[in-house]
Amino acid sequence: MTLHAELRVTRGTFTLELDLTIEAGEVVALLGPNGAGKTTALRALAGLDAGGRVRHNGSTWDGLPAERRPIGVVFQDYLLFAHMTALDNVAFGPRARGVRKADANVVAAQRLEQVGLAGFAKAKPRTLSGGQAQRVALARALATDPELLLLDEPLAALDASTRLRVRSELARHLRDYPGHTLLVTHDPLDAMVLADRLVILEHGRVVQQGTPKDVVRQPRTDYVANLVGLNFYRGLADDTTIRLDDGGTLTVAEPATGPVHVVFPPTAVSLFPDKPSGSPRNTWPATVAGIEQHAHTTRVELDGSPAVVADITTATVADLRLQPGTTLWVSLKATEIHTYPAG
């Protein structure tokens, strides 16, 4: 079942024109800089502002206010009701939709358990940590079994260390959720870890969309290139060795086990005409597939095992006499590679 949305919002000189389709079970990330219209799009989809035409499963949501749309929203700062316990917060949605109090409490307790907060039912939001509050917000949004789950910068309010853990938890919950998910974020890493497809928005228009891999490999604008300037892979870790799903192995500094995401910036990649020797680096041969000139650097797309994107200086391009088809050696320091548990 596909959800189709046509979002048309005009505010002053700003216009949002966004057509979205989201499959059941799919997570779409709406990625873009501040002021691109991401939050406007989310509010229109939610019915909090006018301009969101949505078709889903033979029905249209046009003109329906938020309270009549089958949605769940996780807000950036969660907006948990401060005077209610965590359980009452989660039970609020079912109660508002007419479920009896006892039944709503059962549903809410289950949802809290799913996010690992069974022991926090009686806790007031202000006593919860940022990560816990985020999980209560997710449980609350999912408690009504919404068709469409909207996440507005769900990790932005967390500090770096919490963020890592909450991100992989969120990825797991999103995989289990059968409905349609739209994630609004300005963080490319969140988008790549959590989403199946990226929709990149600039000045109220879609500038590019595709799988995280496609977008990283072929950014269509400078903005996108900078935004998603990351090499991104999925793989299986065994201590400091990671076997990548799409071929190739990498040696990393921090040991890990099981499925992981692997991320490193294109600037961490060095290119050499011959196999470099004598350093504990990841090296592998690769062929230049594309060269793209940006303002201060040149982005080189390389086929190999794994395929990789490198940002190098214009001088290096000249030194190496790079052109499509050139064969080179790729080198990458283990300490430049970040790995995250995949779930």
Partner: peptide, 11 residues
């Protein structure tokens, strides 16, 4: 915005 949050929950 708390009222909006309540609205998205169906209130």
């Amino acid at each position: 915005r708390f009222e909006e949050a309540a609205a998205t929950l169906g209130a």
